[in-house]
C-alpha cells in the first residue's frame, strides 16, 4: 500500500489529496447523507412543514404496490439484459477465438456500440421499431406481429431490453475474448489429442475456465442494467405505457423531479445505494479471489 521508500510527513500530501476530497465531500458524501436524512422526513402537501417520521417513508414504499412492481421489473430487466448480451457475446467470442485471420477486424467491428450513449442507443432502436415508419416494425407486419410499444407494455419492455443489451454486447465480447485468449493452448491441444471435438472442448474446458469472467461480467451487467439504463428508458418509453418499463432508477428520477415526493424519492435513493454497495462488495471480493490464483 505505502511505498517502503517514501517522503516524510509534511503539509504537501494534504494539499495533494485536497481537490479529490473536497469534491467527494461536497458532491458525494454530503448529498448522500442529505438523502439519508430526507428519507426520514415527510413534507406536507404544500411543502410548508416537514415532520421527522423515522422509517415511515420506507414502510410506505414497502406497502406501495407500484414500487414493489418496479423492483420486480428491474430484476427481470437486469436478468434479461445480462443474459441476452452475455450469451450473444459468449457465442461471438467463442467463434472469434477460432478464426485466426480477421479476428482483429471482427473485434474492431464489434466494439463500437460501447461508444454509443445509452440515450442514443434508445433513439436508434425507437427509430427502427417506430410503429408507423420503423423498418423492423414494417418487417414484423409480414409475420403477423403488430408492433406498437406505445400501447403494448410487453413490447415496450422488450424494446428497452434490446437496446440495453445491444449496447453492452461490445463490452462483454471484449472481456470474453480476452479470457479465452488467455487459456493456455496446451490445455486445449491436450484435449484435442484425446479426441475432444471443438464443441466438447468448449463445454468441458473453455467455459469452466472462463467462469470467473462470467461472474465478473454478471456483476458488471447487473450494475449497468440497474443504473446506466436511465437514458434508454427515458428516450424509448418514459417508463410507460402504464409504468410497464418504470425501472428503479427511472422511478427515483420521476418521483423526485416530476412528482416532487422528496421523502419517498430519498428513501428510494437510500435503497439503491444499499444495492450498489452490495454489488460493489461482491465485485471486490471476487476480484480479490481472482488475484490469488
Amino acid at each position: 500500500m505505502l511505498k517502503r521508500v517514501h517522503f516524510p510527513s509534511s503539509p504537501l500530501p494534504y494539499l495533494l489529496v485536497a481537490p479529490q476530497i473536497a469534491i467527494t465531500l461536497v458532491f458525494f458524501i454530503w448529498p448522500a447523507s442529505q438523502a439519508m436524512y430526507q428519507s426520514f422526513l415527510i413534507e406536507d402537501a404544500f411543502g410548508l412543514s416537514t415532520e421527522f417520521v423515522w422509517f415511515e417513508n420506507y414502510e410506505l414504499l414497502m406497502e406501495d404496490k407500484q414500487y414493489l412492481d418496479s423492483f420486480g421489473r428491474t430484476i427481470f430487466f437486469s436478468a434479461a439484459v445480462a443474459f441476452l448480451s452475455m450469451s450473444l457475446a459468449l457465442v461471438l467470442a467463442g467463434f472469434a477465438d477460432r478464426v485466426i485471420r480477421g479476428a482483429m477486424v471482427y473485434r474492431t467491428l464489434l466494439i463500437w456500440p460501447y461508444a454509443v450513449a445509452p440515450v442514443l442507443a434508445g433513439a436508434l432502436w425507437v427509430f427502427m421499431f417506430n410503429p408507423t415508419l420503423g423498418i423492423i416494425s414494417y418487417a414484423l407486419e409480414f409475420v403477423g406481429v403488430n408492433w406498437n410499444h406505445y400501447l403494448n407494455g410487453e413490447q415496450a419492455m422488450a424494446l428497452v431490453i434490446f437496446a440495453a443489451a445491444w449496447k453492452q454486447i461490445a463490452y462483454n465480447f471484449l472481456f470474453y475474448l480476452a479470457a479465452m485468449q488467455s487459456i493456455p493452448r496446451s490445455v486445449i491441444e491436450a484435449a484435442a489429442i484425446d479426441g475432444a471435438g471443438p464443441m466438447r472442448r468448449f463445454i468441458t474446458i473453455v467455459f469452466p475456465l472462463i467462469a470467473p469472467t462470467t461472474f465478473f461480467l454478471l456483476v458488471i451487467n447487473a450494475v449497468y442494467a440497474f443504473f446506466d439504463t436511465f437514458g434508454i428508458v427515458h428516450a424509448v418509453t418514459q417508463g410507460g405505457p402504464a409504468n410497464a418499463t418504470t425501472i428503479l432508477v427511472y422511478k427515483v428520477y420521476n418521483d423526485g423531479f416530476v412528482g416532487l415526493d422528496l421523502g419517498g424519492s430519498a428513501a428510494q435513493s437510500v435503497i439503491l445505494m444499499a444495492l450498489v454497495i452490495g454489488m460493489t462488495v461482491v465485485q471486490f471480493r471476487f476480484v480479490e479471489r481472482k488475484v490469488q490464483y
Binding site: 448522500a32 438523502a35 432508477v249 422528496l262 450498489v276 454497495i277
Partner: peptide, 19 residues
Amino acid sequence: IFITLMLPVEVRILPTFEV
C-alpha cells in the same frame, strides 16, 4: 475516495442537484 465508487449520480440526483 473508495466510497465514491458506491454512489453513482443516479442514486443521489436530487440532493446533489440541490448542492
